[in-house]
Amino acid sequence: MSDATAGIARPIPLPETDRGSIQSIERAAMVLALFDQHTRTLSPALVSERLGLNRTTAHRYLLSMQASGFLSASYGPGPLVDQLSGLVSTRQQIMTLAPSLLRQLSDRTGLTAVVSFLGRSGAVVGHVEEANEGTIVLTVRVGTVLEIKAAQSRVLLAFQSDPAVVSRLHAGLAPAEAQREHAELALARRDRIAWADLGRVGLASVAAPVFGADDVQAAMAVLGTTTMLPSSTESEERVTMLREAAEQLSAMLNG
Rank of each mutant, 00 (worst) to 15 (best):
residue 226 T to Y: 13
residue 119 G to V: 10
residue 31 V to P: 03
residue 16 E to H: 05
residue 182 H to Q: 12
residue 172 G to H: 07
residue 187 L to F: 01
residue 32 L to R: 03
residue 216 V to M: 08
residue 114 V to Y: 11
residue 160 Q to Y: 02
residue 9 A to D: 12
residue 163 P to V: 03
residue 176 A to Y: 04
residue 70 F to N: 11
residue 218 A to F: 02
residue 57 T to L: 07
residue 174 A to K: 07
residue 14 L to D: 09
residue 30 M to I: 04
residue 249 L to C: 02
residue 78 G to N: 07
residue 56 T to P: 15
residue 216 V to F: 06
residue 248 Q to M: 07
residue 53 L to D: 03
residue 183 A to H: 06
residue 148 I to D: 07
residue 244 E to I: 13
residue 213 A to E: 14
residue 89 S to W: 01
residue 176 A to K: 05
residue 65 M to N: 08
residue 120 R to Q: 08
residue 252 M to N: 09
residue 9 A to F: 13
residue 18 D to R: 14
residue 154 R to M: 06
residue 227 T to R: 09
residue 119 G to E: 08
residue 193 I to E: 02
residue 91 R to I: 13
residue 187 L to S: 15
residue 44 P to L: 08
residue 174 A to L: 14
residue 36 D to E: 06
residue 146 L to Q: 09
residue 227 T to I: 12
residue 75 Y to T: 14
residue 22 I to R: 01
residue 175 P to H: 02
residue 147 E to H: 15
residue 17 T to D: 10
residue 82 D to Y: 00
residue 76 G to P: 12
residue 163 P to A: 01
residue 1 M to F: 06
residue 228 M to W: 12
residue 74 S to K: 15
residue 233 T to G: 12
residue 52 G to S: 03
residue 100 S to V: 12
residue 251 A to R: 11
residue 3 D to P: 13
residue 154 R to D: 04
residue 23 Q to T: 08
residue 80 L to K: 05
residue 214 D to N: 11
residue 246 A to H: 03
residue 27 R to G: 02
residue 48 S to C: 08
residue 168 R to Y: 12
residue 10 R to G: 12
residue 126 G to T: 04
residue 83 Q to E: 15
residue 176 A to S: 09
residue 20 G to N: 05
residue 239 V to D: 03
residue 196 A to N: 05
residue 164 A to M: 10
residue 82 D to M: 11
residue 116 S to G: 06
residue 35 F to V: 06
residue 105 L to D: 02
residue 94 I to T: 02
residue 122 G to I: 08
residue 55 R to G: 12
residue 179 Q to S: 14
residue 221 A to I: 02
residue 80 L to M: 08
